[in-house]
Computed example of a mutant assay.
Amino acid sequence: MVPDALRIALLLLVAMPAAAQGVFRCQDAAGKVAYQSQPCAVGSRESQLRLRNDAPEAPTQPRVSQWKGFTPPRVAAITFYYDPAEEPVGFSSERMEADIRAAMAAWSAGCDVRLAYGGRRPARLPATPDHVPIRWAPEYMQLAHPADGRSGIAGTGSLTSGIALKPRFHESNMLSVLVHEMGHVLGLPHNHDDRQSVMSYLRDDALRRNPQPSAGDLRDCNESMKTLFGIEYRAPVDAPPPRVGPRMTDGEALERLRGSRRP
């Protein structure tokens, strides 16, 4: 406990101007003590406290909040890295990085998620939100689509395996593939029923050249962020309603593209 007299003195020291040289301690005949900047009255017992200029500095540690029950808001954040190993002829790392940033910007424009590009780094698996690798997968050259053996796989994507790309398609198509696979990383499934969706195999050709997520894609992305990271999301009034019922399967979509398979 700090004595009352000393506590008063400390308060006076804080309040006094820097030019002051000291504080007078005055004690009257009854033993009452007062601290003042002027000399004591006649008949009082007087002593003087000299001000010091070697006070300790304020602590540099951040202050801890004393609020009870306060929970910081959750943030959805994902960082991508590019592994240029096995990069095929006809591609450049600089162009790949530009397309990665463009794909992130396309999703960030309407989805409540912080997407960042961390640069070039060897792929690390399993992926985590702070390290999602984008890599080339030569093994995909010999891998058929599981839903239709007549089709191959351009790439795959998920939050645990990152993005793996088949090293055989034109560089001009890369942005469309990255936007699609990045949608899988964000938790979106295929949506072949919506021909405007970047998650559909049946997307209109005109939209493929400008791979921007549809309004439904952005709604699904925000719903996924709510599920994965606990982000509070309220759909805009004009947002399309979520689809009810089963979606078109990959096999059905590929049959529409290639025709029915012969028995």
Score class of each variant (00 low, 15 high):
residue 4 D to F: 03
residue 107 W to R: 02
residue 187 G to A: 07
residue 69 G to T: 05
residue 87 E to N: 14
residue 119 G to D: 03
residue 96 M to G: 08
residue 146 P to C: 04
residue 198 V to F: 00
residue 125 L to P: 01
residue 91 F to W: 04
residue 11 L to D: 11
residue 117 Y to Q: 04
residue 81 Y to L: 11
residue 215 A to H: 04
residue 53 N to A: 15
residue 176 S to I: 03
residue 85 A to G: 09
residue 156 T to Q: 10
residue 4 D to A: 12
residue 255 E to R: 07
residue 174 M to D: 10
residue 63 R to C: 12
residue 217 D to F: 00
residue 254 L to E: 01
residue 234 R to W: 07
residue 245 G to N: 08
residue 89 V to C: 07
residue 148 D to E: 02
residue 2 V to G: 01
residue 155 G to A: 15
residue 230 G to L: 07
residue 259 G to F: 01
residue 223 E to T: 07
residue 54 D to T: 14
residue 17 P to E: 02
residue 142 Q to Y: 08
residue 184 H to N: 08
residue 218 L to C: 11
residue 93 S to W: 01
residue 217 D to A: 02
residue 51 L to S: 12
residue 240 P to W: 06
residue 123 A to V: 01
residue 216 G to V: 02
residue 156 T to D: 10
residue 180 H to S: 05
residue 59 P to L: 12
residue 213 P to A: 09
residue 53 N to P: 03
residue 139 E to R: 09
residue 126 P to S: 14
residue 25 R to S: 13
residue 43 G to Q: 03
residue 78 I to V: 15
residue 63 R to L: 15
residue 206 A to I: 13
residue 171 E to C: 11
residue 152 G to K: 00
residue 101 R to Q: 12
residue 139 E to Q: 08
residue 219 R to A: 12
residue 124 R to V: 14
residue 125 L to W: 04
residue 112 D to H: 08
residue 31 G to I: 14
residue 53 N to T: 14
residue 29 A to H: 13
residue 238 D to F: 06
residue 147 A to M: 09
residue 205 D to L: 11
residue 198 V to H: 00
residue 231 I to G: 06
residue 49 L to Y: 01
residue 70 F to C: 13
residue 226 K to I: 00
residue 171 E to L: 15
residue 189 P to C: 04
residue 207 L to A: 03
residue 110 G to V: 08
residue 76 A to S: 11
residue 150 R to P: 04
residue 111 C to H: 00
residue 109 A to G: 15
residue 258 R to P: 01
residue 8 I to N: 09
residue 24 F to W: 15
residue 169 F to D: 06
residue 129 P to V: 14
residue 165 L to F: 07
residue 110 G to D: 10
residue 78 I to N: 08
residue 23 V to S: 09
residue 9 A to D: 02
residue 64 V to M: 11
residue 257 L to Y: 02
residue 257 L to T: 05
residue 181 E to L: 12
residue 216 G to K: 02
residue 180 H to L: 06
residue 33 V to A: 06
residue 44 S to Y: 05
residue 118 G to F: 01
residue 3 P to Q: 04
residue 17 P to T: 05
residue 26 C to H: 01
residue 159 L to N: 08
residue 59 P to T: 12
residue 15 A to R: 02
residue 21 Q to S: 15
residue 159 L to G: 14
residue 39 P to Q: 13
residue 127 A to C: 04
residue 256 R to K: 11
